[in-house]
Write a protein that binds this DNA or RNA. Structure first.
Length: 110
DNA sequence: TGGTTGACTAAGT
DNA sequence: CACTTAGCCAACC
């Protein structure tokens, strides 16, 4: 069996499930998928998610920083998308990140 | 086939 | 506080 990279597909599904006005981290998604420490793979998945129905702008790093903003066509696109959903962003970081954090493991249940 | 890279994270220097 | 090392694993050249 080739074992298709279901990881990518599941990552997209999880990101789609992120409620508007909420954010999550690469590590949280990785952990939900069962690859704790493989947060980089989530980032790679998001790279492929660009242009799809995946709100990758709701995924930030563990520090709440918009590390992937340069992959949205323009460095400010990600911030604008977040602000459009009611998320306050300053200095390339999500304000009140802890409160807005949406953990799939906790919300969806593991 | 194998080394490098990467939208990460944590810990060490 | 800035940089390095180390772990993680798939994609790329």
């Amino acid at each position: 069996m080739k074992g298709n990279s279901d990881f990518f597909k599941e990552a997209y599904e999880v990101v789609r499930l992120i409620p508007s006005g909420r954010v999550t981290s690469y590590g949280a998604i990785a952990q939900y998928l069962g690859i704790t420490g493989g947060a980089r793979m989530v980032g790679w998945a998001m790279n492929q998610a660009y242009g799809k129905d995946v709100p990758a702008h709701r995924v930030v790093n563990r520090n709440g920083l918009l590390t992937g903003r340069h992959h949205f066509g323009h460095p400010s696109t990600m911030q604008q998308l977040l602000e459009a959903e009611g998320i306050e962003v300053e200095n390339n970081a999500v304000k009140n990140f802890v409160a807005l954090f949406w953990d799939p493991v906790k919300e969806l249940g593991l």
